[in-house]
Design a protein around this nucleic acid. Sequence first.
DNA 1: CCTTGTTAGTTACAAAATCAACTATTATCG
DNA 2: CGATAATAGTTGATTTTGTAACTAACAAGG
Lengths: 146, 146
Amino acid sequence: MTEKDDFALQDFLPFLLNRAAEESSLEFQGQYRDRYGMLRTEWRVLFHLGIYGSMTAKDIGVRAKIHKTKISRAVAKLTERRFVVRNRDEKDRRAEHLSLTPAGEAAYRDLQSVAKDYDAKLTSQFSDDEAETLRRLLKKLSGMEV
Amino acid sequence: MTEKDDFALQDFLPFLLNRAAEESSLEFQGQYRDRYGMLRTEWRVLFHLGIYGSMTAKDIGVRAKIHKTKISRAVAKLTERRFVVRNRDEKDRRAEHLSLTPAGEAAYRDLQSVAKDYDAKLTSQFSDDEAETLRRLLKKLSGMEV
DNA sequence: CCTTGTTAGTTACAAAATCAACTATTATCG
DNA sequence: CGATAATAGTTGATTTTGTAACTAACAAGG
């Protein structure tokens, strides 16, 4: 396992991002999986609706960069479990406005507090300044608030 | 799509990490997929062997946080394609030392230069200082160089 | 209106990831 | 020593994902 190269591919951003993302997601997954039998995409949809109140599948996909078939399936599961309701847009009958049911809201609030704690745990190893910088740079990478 | 909540789950680190990781990986995937028909895990294994010269499957898994079955299958594919050779450790006959063949080295060098360009493109939106900070914080998150 | 193109969302089928159970080998400890 | 546990890696069955093709609704130009 000897170093062999110059260009620091150890510093390759997609690799560093993937590793950190995978690790934190796996750790957090225990929470929503054990409590609600949710998958990662389902939790992500729930949390978008929890934050923004009402969005279409398309909106969620754009904002979270999740592919539409994944969202379609997640919404189907969440609807089946009565966490989400669909409301067809009367002006454009292709689109559906999604929102949380009371049960969905409850699940969201519950998981939100768990997420808060987990986030705090993750960022506890950083200074406030570092944590803020990390978030800012990640958003910039995703083309948010450029 | 109105804001409804206080706790900035939009700033939830696992979400920001996932989004950025997914986006950059998808973009970069075109390279190794079109050129060599590789999957993400195969490319990741190749790149570890390219950097470190020789590692066991276990080593790679620990360093990159990839599950062992994924690695096992990626190594099988890479071996089949004559990019990787296995050498059983004579002291501990459970372990195999993996390394690149000349063909594997060539593929690595080729993809390395593509990766270099892509990384440069990604980081071009940051100052040198920001890019360095981002890498440092991501490594810290993954428990590297604490 | 009516053809052609686009968009929101779904579905079928193929590909890949996950999980649990497995082999083979080495480590531990009475 | 010998039994039990632990580790490296593989495999099969199941679950999830990705790809492409699809439906249904709207848009724009002639």
